[in-house]
Write a protein that binds this DNA or RNA. Sequence first.
DNA 1: ATTTATACCCAAGTATTTTATGTATATAAA
DNA 2: TTTATATACATAAAATACTTGGGTATAAAT
Lengths: 111, 111
Amino acid sequence: MKNSQLYKGSLTTIVMKLLEENGRMYGYEITQKVKDITKGELKITEGALYPALHKLEAEGVLEVEVENVDNRLRKYYKLTEKGSAETINRLAELEDFIRNMQTLVQPKLDY
Amino acid sequence: MKNSQLYKGSLTTIVMKLLEENGRMYGYEITQKVKDITKGELKITEGALYPALHKLEAEGVLEVEVENVDNRLRKYYKLTEKGSAETINRLAELEDFIRNMQTLVQPKLDY
DNA sequence: ATTTATACCCAAGTATTTTATGTATATAAA
DNA sequence: TTTATATACATAAAATACTTGGGTATAAAT
């Protein structure tokens, strides 16, 4: 994803959140969306994204609709019912994670 | 560390921050400190921590002082000069990471 | 004509962590 | 007093996620 190790483990959560928000997206669109939202700070590589999408599909979290647009293949992914439920858990975990990391890092305000 | 994948990649940053704050700590102390600070939500496993400490030492980020306390071995770790400089970078990266993740996840406030 | 953008894919290698152990002493509980 | 818990270190195999470096193909821009 980037130079920083910190993004490891966050890819599927990001994907699921984006799909929850946007209904359906295709892989390349996801990479561009993340780049836009983070102003270029986070670049999802295709070598990481596509295997992750396939895995989520195999787990029944995502389902795919293949379409042909301008003579090019597109695979639209969207959350299944199971995936929507999972996303809620993932986002709760992310909030916990962020809160815990802030607690660990935040300078003590005891003065 | 936990059930959530999100903590992957954050271990060394956590360790370095704790050492920056506390001067010197030993491995077991770090595991307990993290458990305390996060109210049990994050448990660093020894299988992850000790190899990480050894690696940071090999990289010249940490240095070790062995002591004998109550007939038990303790290895106190502290940041080297290089380690202190590195820690500043790591914490900046963490702040960027958290900000980016919040941007990705935060519901749009355009209403 | 060549590069950039769009759009998918895989596989080898790397790095981090989990899981499952192992050793040993001190203290608390049954 | 035996057993369990806490303290304190450690390793090594397996699982996991990601990086890096390719590959295929069409459309648009330079």
